[in-house]
Design a protein around this nucleic acid. Structure first.
Length: 111
DNA sequence: GCGGTGACGAAGC
DNA sequence: AGCTTCGCCACCG
């Protein structure tokens, strides 16, 4: 992808996340080849809300399946609501069966 | 051009 | 086994 910035790469990968699946920041970072900069992925998402609000950032959670960015999404449990709309089960800011719904771009997209 | 930042992750205690 | 600390690296001012 002719992405000028690392953020654009993150946006593109997140957009490829199928409904009903979730991935982790580190997985995206690893797919992009910058697994050490998992923080950048999260930071990119933060910027994505302001720039690319169409990105399903709610499908991206941390390694533990926790909705860490929930507070950045909206006033309340909007992130949880969006995940439920995708057919996911969320309890106490954590995706249930996270391991089962985990979407690994490195494998699914197979660089 | 440099320092601060950050929705993480892994290691250490 | 749970909490704390450090590292990491691209973007912004």
């Amino acid at each position: 992808m002719q992405s000028s910035t690392f953020y654009q790469d993150v946006y593109d990968v997140v957009k490829l996340i199928p409904a009903g699946r979730v991935t982790s920041y580190g997985a995206i970072a690893a797919y992009l080849g910058t697994k050490g900069s998992s923080r950048l992925v999260g930071y990119a998402m933060n910027n994505s809300i302001k720039t690319e609000a169409s990105i399903p950032a709610h499908r991206v959670v941390n390694r533990n399946g926790l909705l860490t960015g929930k507070f950045h999404f909206g006033p309340g449990n909007e992130m949880k609501n969006l995940l439920e709309q995708d057919g996911l089960e969320v309890m106490d800011n954590q995706v249930k069966n996270f391991k089962s719904v985990f979407w690994n771009p490195t494998i699914e997209l197979e660089i």
